[in-house]
Computed example of a mutant assay.
Amino acid sequence: MSFMLPSASPSARSVVGVADDLLAALRGESALLPRADSVVLVVIDGLGAISLRAHAGHARALTAGMAKKDVAQSVFPSTTAAALTSIVTGVWPGEHGLVGYRVLDPIRDVLVNQLSGWETDGIDPYTWQAAPTIFERAGGVGHESFAVGFAGYAHSGFTKATLRGAEFVAATTAASRIEAAYALAQSHPGSLVYCYLPEVDKAGHKYGIASSEWVAALEDVDAALSARVPPGVGVVVTSDHGMVDVAPNRQIVLEADHLEGVRHVGGEPRMLHAYLEPDADGVSLVSRWRADLEGVADVVTREEAVRAGLFGPTVSEAASPRIGDVLAIARGSWAVYDGTAADQRGRGMVGQHGALTPEERQVPVVRLGAFAR
């Protein structure tokens, strides 16, 4: 089975540059955005451009001025830990090092959850993710920064890794978070404000993007974004990734015989990282997986993935061993599970992401307020 990296135009916009465009707009130096007195970056977790356009009637505030070109490519893996970090640092996963959902800490030989396991898995956010954030860079040139989100996120390890340099402001509903973000931007001229909306992603994981619950979450977020933007404030609304629905009959389970020679299985069902035993026959495992997962997933080695630029143009020495020796990247609407894992709760998740499909990687980039066309 051959592996072909999905092609993208060399001029295609990436989420990696979105935050830097906003910072440049404060100085009137952005090639894409007009100058603004203050700027707001709204990230709607889990909202792909394809699913947004398919439900445009339920998101009129978001799609009213959305042109065909108002999209960007997310990073790989198309998962929150990797993509959100790329948005707020302006660098690719191969550089910031959050290369998946659960990855190997090679020093301790344990899997760590890069989204919610910073405390329980013992990860130091200041050394594990060492790239400067956009908020730190903004502060370095005299701009205040704020991050608006749920109170429970305020002191998390992921927040320390990705939002350091910003003053955290808590708000509960999507509407109250948008209201707080706009008020901060208005009352602090020259500021950079980040606002995180996870509701769509949560509904998609639990119910799927074909569900009424997902539509209701989209409508709620869209209603929040219909609020008037204060004069002089530029707003960009984007997402970290989209998702696809995985039906039960599209779940492929790897049992013990498939995992012979595998020491750890990380990642997530649409992008598995397999870490091999030191004496494992990697060539045989890759050959076996390629045969067994024909049409279901692309199976590539770490070296092939790095050479193809999947994790970005460069992969640091720290990030490289966090990438699996072998990767299984799901195609279409398939998902691949570790059947030997003690925790099988993920098998009930409907909406999923992490792979390379357009549904997962194409995200909206909508301009509001002083940035509106």
Rank of each mutant, 00 (worst) to 15 (best):
A161Q: 10
T238D: 05
P34C: 12
T172S: 13
P230G: 07
S211Y: 08
E95K: 05
L47M: 13
R228G: 04
G97C: 12
A256L: 06
G208P: 03
A216I: 07
A335M: 04
R60I: 09
G28I: 03
A216L: 14
L52C: 07
A319P: 08
G139R: 15
V306L: 00
G295W: 08
V141K: 06
F158R: 03
G100Y: 09
S176D: 15
N249P: 00
R177T: 10
G152I: 04
G295E: 15
D70Q: 12
D281L: 01
L52F: 04
M271C: 14
G324T: 08
E303C: 01
R290G: 02
W128D: 08
H155Q: 11
S284L: 08
A280L: 02
L276P: 00
E359T: 03
L272R: 04
V18D: 07
W289Y: 07
L22T: 14
G190I: 08
L327F: 12
A247F: 08
F76W: 06
D201Y: 05
R250E: 14
A130R: 06
L272S: 04
I252S: 11
A319W: 01
A147T: 14
D21T: 10
E213K: 11
P269N: 06
D257Y: 01
Q344G: 10
S226Y: 09
A341E: 15
S78P: 01
A138V: 09
R102T: 15
R35W: 06
Q114I: 06
Q352M: 13
A81P: 13
V99W: 01
G232L: 13
P321R: 02
N113G: 02
A67H: 08
I323V: 12
H205W: 00
A82S: 15
E219L: 06
D70G: 12
A154H: 12
P189R: 13
V99D: 13
T79R: 02
A67D: 13
D257V: 04
A280S: 03
F371W: 10
D298L: 02
G139P: 11
A256I: 04
L310A: 03
P106D: 13
V265K: 00
T120N: 05
V235Q: 12
S74D: 06
L5I: 09
R27M: 14
E359W: 07
L310E: 02
R373E: 14
E317D: 15
L218G: 03
Y207W: 07
S156A: 07
Q352S: 07
T238Y: 09
D201S: 11
L272K: 03
C195K: 05
A72R: 03
Y182H: 14
H353R: 10
T238K: 04
A138T: 10
V253G: 05
S51M: 13
E303W: 01
G100R: 09
F371G: 07
V246H: 06
D292L: 04
A210W: 04
L259F: 05
D257M: 01
F311V: 00
S287W: 00
I209F: 14
M66P: 09
G208C: 05
T340V: 09
T89G: 08
A170C: 05
A138C: 11
L84F: 15
V296R: 12
G149L: 01
L22R: 09
T314P: 00
R288Y: 00
G165S: 12
A166E: 07
K68E: 15
V99Y: 05
G122Q: 02
P248V: 12
G157T: 12
R250P: 10
Y153R: 07
Y182W: 13
